[in-house]
Nucleic acid binder design. Sequence first.
DNA 1: CGAATATTTGAACTTAATCAACCGAGGTGG
DNA 2: CCACCTCGGTTGATTAAGTTCAAATATTCG
Lengths: 253, 253
Amino acid sequence: MSILRTPPVAGTADPSGLPANRVAAGALPCNTCAARQFSICAPVSDADLPHFFAMSVKLRFEPRRYLFDEGDAPRYVFSIASGTVCLSKALSDGRRQITGFLFAGDFIGLAHGETCAYTAEALTPVEVCRFPRDRFERYMTEHPHVERRLLQIASTELAAAQDQMLLLGRKTATERVASFLIRLSDRAVAHGRSGNPVCLPMTRAEIGDYLGLTLETVSRTMTQLRKRGAIDLDNTSVVRLTSEETLRRLAGV
Amino acid sequence: MSILRTPPVAGTADPSGLPANRVAAGALPCNTCAARQFSICAPVSDADLPHFFAMSVKLRFEPRRYLFDEGDAPRYVFSIASGTVCLSKALSDGRRQITGFLFAGDFIGLAHGETCAYTAEALTPVEVCRFPRDRFERYMTEHPHVERRLLQIASTELAAAQDQMLLLGRKTATERVASFLIRLSDRAVAHGRSGNPVCLPMTRAEIGDYLGLTLETVSRTMTQLRKRGAIDLDNTSVVRLTSEETLRRLAGV
DNA sequence: CGAATATTTGAACTTAATCAACCGAGGTGG
DNA sequence: CCACCTCGGTTGATTAAGTTCAAATATTCG
């Protein structure tokens, strides 16, 4: 559908070269996930986790592979076990907007209609638990509290989406980049990781596609934030927030 | 909270000057709503509509009054019976982003946490059915199919939000305005009204705050669309789509 | 090491914002 | 009734923010 489409299984970009084996190797109930960091985001209580994840199989996606693409039939729901995924929508001429970055514990694919409304792409090596959509929906119908939890998740995402609209519609480049770094930091803390050296598992181009800027502007703005003493770059993908105070001020409310 | 705040009931901007009377006059169960256009958007089946709307009272808001404001405690949920409402988020210096325009049949206030995440403002005279939040949630718990319906609504809104992110992050001014007009037209059709002479019950400034543009750019872009033969302005708030073909092309996929 | 990829920086350019003037409709009060 | 005011809209001139094009540098990975 999208001109950016990469076949999700077969193709030259698959380093393993063994897609069928890959799937077979991962085709085990994803019980292990339950023991990990899912307490934050799984839409079921701890006691139900094993039963819940028994519906899923664990799979691995290499960087730049698509979990699914805009326009695909929405056959699965995914829970990220590790790695970073981005969701995006594209225009026919290649311009695209990344609508979100997802990390371990996040769910993907809950909000589709007849076709997938966006593309989900692995930015790093990604491990997921994949749930057949029909089984997931049956489970949901049988467990109404899951529906309520999903409604909460959807509400949170909606609030985040509105924040992002404010950022895209009204904030300057500096405010956008500062907001982005703070969000990543806060999110790391919410997931129980350290909030200060912030990891950027995405390229400048991907940050640009998320913030409605070009990769050059992202780069220039980072340099400017460094010169202003708000951040320091350990390397291009690890940012130390030297003055969170300054950074929050520059983020504009 | 927001510097744009206007008191929602008392204050000089209230033409009636009788807020208490207003509420008393409207404090009747909103059964009449059920007979109207709510089949599209109410989260309950037709048979349940009378019982559902019995929880609500009908109220009227004059233009520029706030149904609630960013940061308020979320005490109510609203269903619009008539008129136009906009939802917005503001930065402390007054810049704001309108995240959506709502019309008859739409629900407001479903997705709040501890405080309202956005402001809801009447753009025209607005009639609403107002539901106490706690009663609404109790109803929801007792009627699981309502939760499922709300999840669908939230999913739809999420998809719309992602579309808007693409618009704000990556589309040109022309594409934004063209997309906006098409959306309004499609939405009117979905609500069973005519899609062609499109009514704009909002000012150029409000359109700008929705599209991430200034009012001048919105105005210039409209004249440009007129000169290109895509639209015609009957008056400033009624747009005829003379070539929907052209308009859709200019909207950029 | 060397090719490919990612990042930074510079210079020219473009789009939309800003500042400003003007027009027209509607409402108010003398 | 009419002068006046306000508000919303249009249009013009100028400016600024960010994009585009281009080149140099850094990093990664086989």
